[in-house]
Structures are given as structure tokens and as C-alpha cells.
Amino acid sequence: MKTFILLAFCALAASAYALNEADRVSGENGWYVPQQDGSFEWVDKDVAEEWMAQQEILESRGLTTVPVSFYLYTSSNPTKGQKISATYKSIDNSNFNAGNPTRFVIHGWTQSYTAGMNKNIRAAWLGQGDYNVIVVDWARARSIDYATSVMAVSATGKKVANMINFLNSNYGMSLNDLYVIGHSLGAHVAGYAGKNTNGQVYAIIGLDPALPLFSYNSPNKRLNSNDAWYVESIQTNGGQLGFLKPIGKGAFYPNGGKSQPGCFMDVTGACSHGRSTTYYAEAVSQDNFGTIKCGDYQSAVNDQCGSTYSGVRMGADTNAYMVSGDFYVPVNSNSPFGMIN
């Protein structure tokens, strides 16, 4: 953030004014960028975009590194991951089975492959049968500065795509039942992975895709509904840490998508933001999130979609065949969070 503050100072010196707080709309004319201590710093859109353009040049010249590791979990090793790489020796010596469907799971800012969301999601899928669950660990997510983690999203996504392409081309891993699941910044990593695969990924699940420093009007620089045959977004802290406008072909708004019940005094939004991962793991294992179809996302946000449940369940494995549009999702404040048995 220090880089942004310096740029903001230079911009202020040049223009002699910045946006008043009342005029700020995060994601439209700037962003409230999260800090590691849980606070937020406002950055005007022109300042942020100038800095990001400069950083993109440095990234493209290879002046920064983007370490990415992959850990494979299967029914044979459900809790201890096998570190794998895109080499014949590595995959041949692992438990990877191309005959089973594959799920990639990608964490967000400040996290690693040992994060609770990864444990919960991999356990949920392995509880459904035989899967290859590959958890992605990207080191740049643990940068103290959120903005520098954002700058690594594209290159990280391309490295995920390289692994997908290797497994598809050399081991026959099917793209037709491949899911790439990402939380927050990891959702945009999933989007870049989908943009760079040799063929179309079946499904991408974006768990509260990160809003700060991403623009709804720049779909090629974020997760968008064209990055896979089906893209689902579960939006739980919209307008703060996550997007409020719909990202996926199927966009789901638990409790209206801004804040979540049971997240008391959630000033930073971290609790509501993280609930997207908790809900998804529960959805995979219990298929218990009923939904109400809405005419548009504003109706979902304002809980103005009526009270009649649709036939769609949030996070369901069958959604790719039948889902399009925006859905309000009633949720409980405690586990189980889904309200349909």
C-alpha cells in the first residue's frame, strides 16, 4: 500500500483534490483496498490504474517471480497432500487417476494450501466419491501488500492452466468434468486459468470473487462468465471485499449477498467474505441450499424475489446443465447454513 500512497500523493499534488468520501463508490471510481491489519485505504481509480499499468510492464518482463505449487489429494491420501509438478515423473509417482473427475481449489489473499477452506472443500468432494483434488498454493497471495498479490493473479492463473493442459494432453484428464474453484483473489486466478486452457473448462466456481482493484467493466481482467462452459459465483460480501454485481452465469446471493447472519461486528467483512467457502463445502456435501429465482441482481440484494423456492440448489453438481440468472439464497446463522433438508 505504500506504493499507492506515494502515487496518491503525487496525484494530489498534480490535481490539488481527490474524491470526497461521499462520492466514493468502490469498484466504480476507486476502491477501498484491504490492509493486512483489517483496515482499508481508499485509492482513486486513476491512481490505481496508473500503478497497475506500470506493474504489468514489470511482470511481463519477468522482473518478479510467481511461485506456484500443487498438492494432490485422493481417496488414497485424503489428508496428506502429494506435491506434484507438470512432469511425467511427478505424476507417474502420484495417486493421480485420470479416470476420476478433477477439482482444482485456489485460496485467496494471505492464505496457503493449508487454509481451512481447502481442507473443507477437498473433504467435501472426497466424501462424494473418487476425485483428484488438486489444491493450488500461490506464494504471492501472502504478500503484505494486497496490490502486489493482485498483480500476480494473471501469471498464477496461467501456471494453473499449464498444469491443466499438461494433465489433459499427456494423461487424458477430461476437461468435460473439470471444476476450478477459487475464493476471493483465487476466483480471478481461476478465471485466468480458464482463459488459458487448451479447450474449455467445464465449470469455474467463484467464491465471493474479490472486488478491490478489479473492475466489472473489464471482464478480460477478472473472472467472467465466459471463462468456462459454466461459471457460478457465490457472493457473500458484495460491495466490500467481493463483487456485488453478478459475475457468473449463475449468481447466488446468500442473505442478499452483502453480509451474512452470524457474522457479528463484521466491520472488515472478513467473516461474510469467508462464508462463501463454508457455504460451498456444505453445499457439496449436503446439497441443502434452496434458492429463489430473481429477475435481476438488485432484487436478490434487496430480498425482493418472493418466497417460492426454485428447483435450483446453490453449489449443486448439476447446475451447469440448468442454471442461468440471479438467485436469492436464504441461510441460517449457524451450521447447517442451508435451509433445505
Rank of each mutant, 00 (worst) to 15 (best):
L178S: 08
V180Y: 05
M52H: 04
T65N: 14
Q82P: 00
N170L: 00
M163F: 09
G30M: 09
Y280S: 11
A283P: 04
Y73K: 04
I205L: 12
P34M: 11
D287H: 13
F243V: 09
S169A: 15
A300F: 03
K45L: 15
L211W: 00
V47Y: 09
V133G: 10
L175C: 13
S218W: 11
K221T: 14
L72D: 05
Q298C: 07
A18V: 14
R61P: 01
N120M: 15
R61C: 13
T318Y: 15
N93K: 12
V136Q: 06
S76Y: 12
S169W: 00
K89N: 15
E59C: 05
T114H: 09
N176K: 12
L6E: 12
A270W: 00
D46F: 14
R275T: 06
G242N: 02
P330S: 04
I134W: 00
V323S: 11
Q286Y: 09
A152S: 15
G250H: 05
H183F: 15
A281E: 04
D317N: 13
N196W: 05
R24F: 02
G172F: 10
Y73S: 08
Y17D: 09
G191K: 03
W51C: 13
N118A: 10
K83N: 10
F4A: 12
A13C: 13
Q82A: 11
F96L: 14
T148K: 12
V133I: 14
V231I: 02
S259L: 10
V135C: 09
A16Y: 14
N176H: 11
A147F: 04
N332Y: 03
V135P: 06
N95F: 14
S299G: 10
V153W: 04
S76F: 14
I181T: 09
S272I: 04
V135R: 00
C271G: 05
D130K: 14
E49R: 14
F252C: 01
G311S: 15
D326C: 13
S218C: 01
K221V: 03
F9L: 12
T65E: 14
S90I: 01
A283H: 08
I84P: 01
D46T: 11
M163G: 06
V312K: 06
W109N: 06
A13L: 15
A300V: 04
T114W: 10
S75N: 15
N196S: 15
F9Y: 10
Y171F: 15
V153M: 10
D303Q: 08
E28F: 13
L19W: 05
G239E: 01
D23L: 07
N95G: 06
I204R: 11
Q286E: 12
G62W: 05
A210W: 00
V180G: 09
S60F: 12
V331N: 08
I234V: 14
D287I: 12
I205Q: 04
L244Q: 11
L19N: 02
Y131R: 09
M151C: 08
W229Q: 13
Q128H: 01
S184K: 06
S333W: 04
S272F: 07
N165W: 01
F9D: 10
A316E: 08
I106M: 03
P261R: 11
S76G: 10
M322A: 13
L213P: 06
G38V: 05
Y202L: 11
